[in-house]
Design a protein around this nucleic acid. Structure first.
Lengths: 179, 179, 179, 179
DNA sequence: TATGAATGAGGATTCATTCAT
DNA sequence: AATGAATGAATCCTCATTCAT
């Protein structure tokens, strides 16, 4: 029965992600349940209300991201390479969706904490990248984090698209005077 | 009463922009009317339904943008300067809001046309900027347009923030090999 | 100015009759005003509210009917002929419309009185027709009145259609045993 | 819960019929739900919108009528007797109500078809009744159908009221010249 | 435990009526 | 006196949530 429950929860999460992605944030609980092949009641057994479901999507994605960053942090490669790997990882995650679904306040404390952790991890990397000389010196670590957010939370973000390239290049380059 | 009506329409538009900005796309028509100091009926006299209101916000913003770009296009300055001016103009416009409010299909034909026009104007500028040598050669004009969209439609975009700087620098720089 | 006002009132009444006939009882006051080529305000100057307008349509039609019946009553012809003339007159009147528009209670006192008058006039005619032997004896005058109502208030009633003929024949005939 | 749902649906239909009968076609969905002892939501679960409810009332009544006519058609009695039975059946049905509620276009295809079927069945009976000599020859079957409609769809129609008698007699009688 | 029926608050929209111009 | 803009109560309908089976 535990197995069944876990499978159901998984189905719900998957269905919700798919529907939100395809049809926007207005999808109803009934639709999600149906797409998961379950009754609404079952959905509500797993997630006490809509916010809880959305929060779960957001939180688990963010946890995955945090863990990935942590793991990369302890790798013995350049901080620039770490940044690249993080960006690459993010391209496969539904970060744009989650930002638009769950980005506006009130953000539940636990998730706020997660975001803080992630931002701090990234800021650390940025700081070290500056020291190793792989990114420009004229922006603060916090601004780097903001830039990464933009890069990675835009809809359809990929790792190897020209937009990412341009932004990464901008991050490395020294400022170029406007003629 | 023509004057009054115009003033009321203006109030509605302002109130709607403010509320959507502060509280997201879920604001109710009643709230908007109330914030404008009017009855719902008046709101509906000016905008036959919610979509019409949202569309008006989007359309008039986009028209303003198109006209601004057109005007800049005929100025006798470098295309890079034109790009900078456009970005600067956009920073004062609620483009992020409008993207999130009215960005998902179905986009009404007139607005789709507007977007096409804008994109084409920008692509032209990008093409000429490449020729004048002010932006890198390894991305297509369409990709430049995409990048501008990202720069300019992110929430809180300003002209002089470091993110804009980084992206603009990335646009000028040649690609920098990862070490 | 009196002439103008009268013309406007007439326009409103005509427009209202036409619209109610074509599009049912749901037509809005704005539509009526517009069809009359006037602003709503003017409509409301002539008729203090919707009920007053509908009531005017009903009352004037019924007054016309009453007056017609009265006039026929004093003619020196058979009562059967009188009945025929009344039916013929009704066929040109919007009685079906008026029944459906204003037929359900509460009927304003003045109109109730009008209806009573009409019914009494008709019942008198029925009584006399029975005495002159032109209609069957086994139904009461009130029932004759009911029958006339059915004949004359059904949508699309005409004088010379087969349904009218059948009903009139039924009124004259003695009852025919079912085999 | 299937049983409960069916009971609720039944309650809704009954309440709707009662309210429409007593208070006309303007009754609100909320009132119907309340009269059925249910929440609006339940009403809308059973009938997706107002039209669906009205349509259900109409359709089920008409289906009942069609089936009754079909059944009578195969009985071994005179066609006149069949007509009488149909009229008798109708007297117990809310046909007047349904005509006024759902009579105006657009009539949904399925119901239009039902009406066609019924009219054809009746026209057949009329044709055969003419042949058996029980109704007059000077009106077409379609006109007989029209007459039956008038008889049976007028408010308060009963089988044994004098109006029905008069109309039926008119249907049998040959035309009687006006003196 | 899973199901889906029931609930009702809340949002969009309409329209009779009022009132400023 | 005519106009049409403003008003808001009333209506239809949706959907998150609860609960009986």
């Amino acid at each position: 029965m535990r197995a069944d429950a876990r499978r159901n929860r998984e189905r719900i999460v998957t269905a919700a992600l798919d529907l939100f992605t395809e049809r926007g944030p207005g999808v109803s609980m009934d639709e999600i349940a149906q797409a998961a092949g379950l009754g609404v009641g079952t959905l509500y057994r797993h997630f006490p209300d809509r916010r809880a479901l959305v929060d779960d999507l957001a939180t688990s994605t963010l946890k995955g991201l945090r863990d990935h960053i942590r793991a990369q942090t302890s790798e013995n490669v350049s901080r620039w390479e770490v940044l690249l790997r993080v960006v690459r990882y993010c391209a496969g995650q539904p970060l744009a969706l989650i930002t638009s679904l769950a980005g506006s306040p009130p953000v539940p404390p636990f998730r706020a904490e997660l975001v803080r952790e992630i931002d701090e991890l990234l800021a650390d990397i940025a700081r070290q990248a500056e020291q190793e000389g792989s990114i420009r010196r004229d922006i603060t670590p916090e601004q780097v984090v903001d830039l990464l957010n933009v890069m990675v939370c835009r809809p359809g973000a990929r790792f190897d698209d020209p937009l990412t390239t341009v932004m990464l290049d901008g991050l490395r380059a020294v400022h170029i005077e406007t003629p």
